[in-house]
Design a protein around this nucleic acid. Sequence first.
DNA 1: AAACGTAAGACGTCCGACGTTTGATGTCCA
DNA 2: TGGACATCAAACGTCGGACGTCTTACGTTT
Lengths: 239, 239
Amino acid sequence: MTAEPADPALEPVRRPALSDEVIERIRARIASGDWPVGSRIPPEPELMRRLQVARGTVREAVRALAHTGLLEVRRGDGTYVKAKSELSGAVTRLYGGSDLGQLLEVREGLDAQAARLAAARADDTALDALADALRRRAAAWEAGDFDAWVTADWDFHAGVADASGNALLAELYHNLAGPLRTAMAEAWSTSGFQGADPVGHETLLAALRERDPAEAGRQAAANVSDTRAWDEGEGSRRG
Amino acid sequence: MTAEPADPALEPVRRPALSDEVIERIRARIASGDWPVGSRIPPEPELMRRLQVARGTVREAVRALAHTGLLEVRRGDGTYVKAKSELSGAVTRLYGGSDLGQLLEVREGLDAQAARLAAARADDTALDALADALRRRAAAWEAGDFDAWVTADWDFHAGVADASGNALLAELYHNLAGPLRTAMAEAWSTSGFQGADPVGHETLLAALRERDPAEAGRQAAANVSDTRAWDEGEGSRRG
DNA sequence: AAACGTAAGACGTCCGACGTTTGATGTCCA
DNA sequence: TGGACATCAAACGTCGGACGTCTTACGTTT
């Protein structure tokens, strides 16, 4: 056990693997928006040429990013950008086809916290956008347009998360959407689930306008609780 | 637009990529505990032999799992299991070195929700374990043992998350630990942060024992809020 | 105009080779 | 005897080429 003096200049020379370097290059392109979601990235031969690495190295990098959900590889066609964040893939894989109840409970926690923070931080622009989402939500409910209702409802909730001023919270919330939507679609097909009370959200918005974090948190929690109660309680009725 | 009749027998024949199959095999071994965290997995040549695939295929799979943080590849040595869940890596990569405040706000939301759920679901065994963690926490505080305090404090909070009966919530909470610890260590070194009021947790435990979700949620939120206030408010003092 | 056949592009997999790093083993000398 | 050194095998890193299969686009035929 020789005591090693801490000498930054004598740290081990570490050279990251080439494939890791390629991963970073690709991720940077995606994060910067150079390769937007849905676009096709250059084919492997071109990446080989431009990065000056062997095909196996390129493939290892692409495969890694595809596994995390950032890329989607279509054999015979090409490789496409699927998402900007890697969180979604992890959450999806962790909870693919899992309990809707658990997802909703997590959402409730994030929802309440986002509401509390948004009550303290949201600016008027954000509040107006939330009001607009609620108008569209109500209109879709009246018209019986389920898709439009889902979209508007999500716009509202996601808007609250964005208005929380917490990027991590917003990111977590957004990435919960995929699994949530899947689970909800399944619940809808098996139990006729069609959404919650269209009134409660108004009181949440009111609490946000009044800068009342505690009340906003209560209202947000109440909204999702209603949805969950509906799903668990009356969810088995159908015909 | 020819309408396609839904015929399960005529669905497209899809064969998943071999490397994806290898990924699943390895992940299954890790998830099942066959290959515990810290152990070394069989070298590439043996995986080739046992899985009957080419080395490139094995490498693509290993590289993908390494990128998500499940495996750690040490050149010249071997490949080791680094974690059981892929969430940790994603969260770390997403918020490595990010705002301590944002992490704490997310934790607060999860904490409060976990407390609410635990108040309704925790059994006596779990409650006793929480009480024990609090005892250790208090003792460490008295003794000025910072490491022991951190451990006991985390045991308590994580215990609440586990007692919530929501596996997703618990998983999210546990995987927040890494980035949180890193950010806290940084805050501690720059501002002398040393932990929050050691009293509040007792009232949370009391609320859990009384099966009072609302009160438990309030207490949990209050605990972390205190910590954040300390960090943001008095965090700049030091000498 | 619709159906078919064809060809090019792109990813999937395999094989073999060599380099670099690491850890362990063995050896030599003080 | 014990420590420092040299050596070697194992394991990962990278490269290059080859062939198969799938997807798409395009031209041809009917």
